[in-house]
């Protein structure tokens, strides 16, 4: 594990977000004549759905069934919605290379267009959470402190106080939130990927989710003001530091004091 948390330019998160949004938006605009997917309302264009179906049959059907009905081992996608597809494929978790305790993200191997098409196809199988709109993801007006309280109540138990992630039972783990962009986090809350439970828009309404996004943005971009944060792993890294560096320095001095002079 790296000791120092990865730092980015304060605006990096925003920039990535903007680029992501623009890219997704353009992709949609190109194929979908400017409509963004809504939960139950707007339906993607027929061509996009058809393109998605093609891609789905090639890449996903072997596990999830020819029409998303699922197989004995792998879940049905009917009713999982576009948000789930976007989350799984943007993070590269799907298509999974090997099933295990936990599917790990990797560099994605589908383009934004392709993912949007597959998402549109899966959304057409049954109503489910949609990909959040730019307006939903705009957390600028949210309350940072409230986001903190919500984060501490709902997220921190698994993802750690600094969003560094943490252990779950039987080898599973909650991933770090440090390099994840807002859309992915929103989709995760809404769709409950893998072992993560679902935080629905009814029990954790969009304005609360925005506040949480704002807090996570704060965790990602505002560094700990006290100095080197030692990986934000709590007292353990402090203990390791004091034994290795702290006592190391002091003992070096004792050896100097005790050494004979020539």
């Amino acid at each position: 594990m790296t000791r120092a948390p990865r730092r980015r330019h304060p605006f990096a998160g925003v920039a990535v977000l903007l680029v992501g949004l623009v890219a997704t938006g353009t992709a949609f605009a190109a194929v979908n004549a400017g409509t963004s997917a809504q939960a139950s309302g707007a339906v993607a264009s027929q061509t996009q759905v058809e393109a998605g179906r093609q891609l789905y049959v090639e890449g996903c059907a072997s596990c999830h069934g020819i029409a998303g009905e699922g197989t004995e081992e792998y879940p049905s996608l009917i009713g999982t919605g576009a948000a789930a597809v976007d989350f799984q494929m943007q993070t590269g978790k799907m298509p999974a290379t090997s099933p295990g305790v936990q599917v790990i993200g990797k560099p994605r191997n589908y383009s934004d267009d392709e993912i949007a098409a597959i998402a549109a196809y899966v959304a057409s199988l049954g109503a489910g959470p949609a990909i959040p709109t730019a307006a939903e993801l705009d957390f600028a007006g949210a309350d940072l402190s409230e986001g903190g309280t919500l984060f501490r109540t709902n997220c921190m138990q698994c993802h750690n106080f600094a969003g560094k992630g943490g252990a779950l039972s039987d080898g599973a783990f909650a991933p770090s939130l440090m390099d994840v962009d807002s859309k992915i986090i929103w989709e995760a809350m809404l769709t409950g990927p893998q072992n993560m439970p679902i935080f629905s828009n009814e029990t954790l309404p969009p304005e609360s989710k925005q506040a949480i996004l704002k807090w996570i943005d704060h965790l990602q971009n505002d560094k700990d003001p006290g100095g080197l944060a030692l990986g934000s792993m709590g007292p353990v890294s402090e203990g390791v530091f004091v034994w290795i560096v702290g006592l190391g320095l002091v003992l070096a001095v004792t050896v100097w004091i005790g050494a004979k002079v020539r």
Binding site: P197, S200, T203
Partner: peptide, 18 residues
């Protein structure tokens, strides 16, 4: 918690946590 909203059963999907 925090937002103090009453909860309808339909608010919680399968796999949900509140």
């Amino acid at each position: 918690d925090v937002t103090l909203r009453p909860i309808r059963p339909s608010d919680i999907p399968v796999g949900g946590l509140v």
